[in-house]
Design a protein around this nucleic acid. Structure first.
Lengths: 191, 191, 191, 191
DNA sequence: CTCTAATCGAGACGGTACGTCGCGTCTTACG
DNA sequence: CGTAAGACGCGACGTACCGTCTCGATTAGAG
């Protein structure tokens, strides 16, 4: 009998809470989810929740932060790469692969705060690694591209009969990525 | 000498509450605003709040719905019009003119729910008046264009030194409107 | 056509409110009766109530004070008279005659405050016109006799098949009045 | 080392609330006591009050019921016993011993409802164990004796310089107990 | 017969206390 | 030791009723 039962239990608690949150987010907005519900659903004591997380929001962060960062490292390069379509396809493929969780994150009861966190994080990363697009403010470009991509992914996963990954990638690339690059025949964009 | 003092008072209450909400939204997120604060700031009795609105959210709707619909009737035609740039300029000019209130609505504490309401309303209107863009699902097009426009307007108003209306219109048009039209090799999108 | 229509109306309001209170006191305790109910039942405007009475309690006083004083002037002489039985009979006869209102006052929702007011008033009157009974403190004698009489009257009127006036008078006299007089063969009452 | 700290705390809360009520009843009528005052005085959270009692009235019952029943079991035997004076003395001695709490209960802000509860309870007990006094209805006899005793005890405890227990017992016996027995010319009631 | 003043019904309002709800802390008992 | 269970302090909520107020319609009795 292993000695890590304690650690195991701790992890189990954490997992159970995350899972419970994901399930409840499919049913109702985040703010309406009560701690009692979370712990009951997770089969965990009420007070135990606060030993892991100081807050309901902390649990959400814990759930979302990792996923967001993973996805972000696939989103941002789009703005600096040459072969944008390939990157967009990689992004869409990744989301599709993890659609179970991303569907909830983007369309469940925490969508709003998650999108905000996403954009916030993206802007922070972009500031570290600027890539002036000349014809429009860097921050505006990032805001546009990131939010457009998120919203489109949200729409995509919400569909009862989603488009194929490849087609989604083409559309995303054309709508949200290419427009921020200077026009191929461009000299004066303000004209 | 006006005869409508009672009605006037009723309206005054409503106006005062709206105004108080706008002011408080500049200071903190919507959920953290307490009814007591609203009524105190509005110089109105606590119970009176619930005589007008069943909810804090109702007040927000009341505040936002009108503004949203006014703006939406300027946003949607973008998708069906010939001279998109002119329409975009009209849109930006309108927002600029009402930037006091829109700055709060788009960047204040109610931004998330407001953006959601906005998109929701836009999709409803679009469904009533479809305009198939053939190469991509109508709903996706609307989602993309509307959210992109909203986010860009939010960014714009948030700037300490905002771009001129005209320049903002050009960028918005190029990023969020033109891309949903058939591609340049099908028909010239930059025109 | 009389000139007192205004006064008449005022009286009508007052009567209607008293009547409404009496009716409602048959149904529920005084504290649970809302001003709105009173005015509705009386067919009178809400604000009109406060034009007549500053308070719900004022209405109750207005209703009770007269009746109490009328009854009291028949109760107190019992303590000073020779032929107590005759007085007790007069008292019982009076109560029986006005049993409609006294039933409500003594058993309805205002019974408690009414009994208290009654005793209070009786003690005040007794203090003005002392009649030392030697063998026990005057105030105690009054308290005993008055509350005993009130409670017995209350019981009497509450009965579905009340005792005859005469019998009630005999019992009341024997239980509540005679005992406070010195015993006929009395020298030392503490023995 | 006690193991019942949780239970202890629960009891402590209950005790503190009862004590707070008793104190406040010395200052003002029951209806004017606000729950907030009770909890503050008891050093207890506002909501905690409603975890114990659904109502302010429930607290009062909880406080009074025990005491009432203890006293009642000493009051009723008076009606069935041979040596009434001894019983009356026992009753008065008990009340005197607990005069701190009974002074508040009988003369404080809850006197009215307490007296009513007392009589109510007494009638219920009497119905279980009838003792026909022939010459007058049982219920009337109980109503008379019980209310007379209560009111006299209330008066007694209210005095700045109360009569001795023994004297009070003699008076109570003569005024409220003996009169319900058959008259002296049927059988000697003073014996 | 009209016009001004008083009165009424209706009901909105500021205010106060209520009883409920959920959070996050804490204490106990168990494995 | 860490956990399930759940009581507690706290504080916002939305409700209910009070007593005040203003309104517009209905008369009153003076001009």
């Amino acid at each position: 009998m292993p000695k890590v039962t304690t650690r195991e239990k701790a992890s189990r608690t954490q997992l159970a809470l995350r899972q419970a949150l994901l399930e409840l987010l499919e049913e109702k907005p985040f703010e309406q989810i009560k701690v009692k519900e979370l712990t009951t659903r997770a089969g965990v004591g009420y007070a135990t929740f606060f030993r892991r997380y100081s807050d309901k929001d902390h649990l959400l962060s814990d759930l979302a932060t990792n996923e967001i960062d993973k996805l972000l490292t696939m989103t941002l390069p789009l703005l600096y790469t040459v072969d944008t379509l390939a990157s967009t396809q990689a992004l869409c493929a990744y989301v599709w692969e993890h659609r179970r969780v991303w569907k909830v994150l983007l369309n469940g009861g925490a969508a709003a705060s998650l999108k905000e966190a996403y954009l916030h994080r993206a802007l922070a990363l972009a500031r570290e690694q600027p890539s002036p697009k000349a014809w429009l403010p860097e921050e505006l470009a990032v805001t546009f591209a990131v939010t457009a991509i998120i919203e489109m992914q949200a729409w995509w996963l919400k569909q009862p009969d989603p488009l194929p990954v490849k087609e989604m990638a083409v559309i995303t690339n054309r709508l949200a990525v290419l427009p921020i690059y200077p026009a191929s025949d461009e000299q004066d964009a303000t004209h």
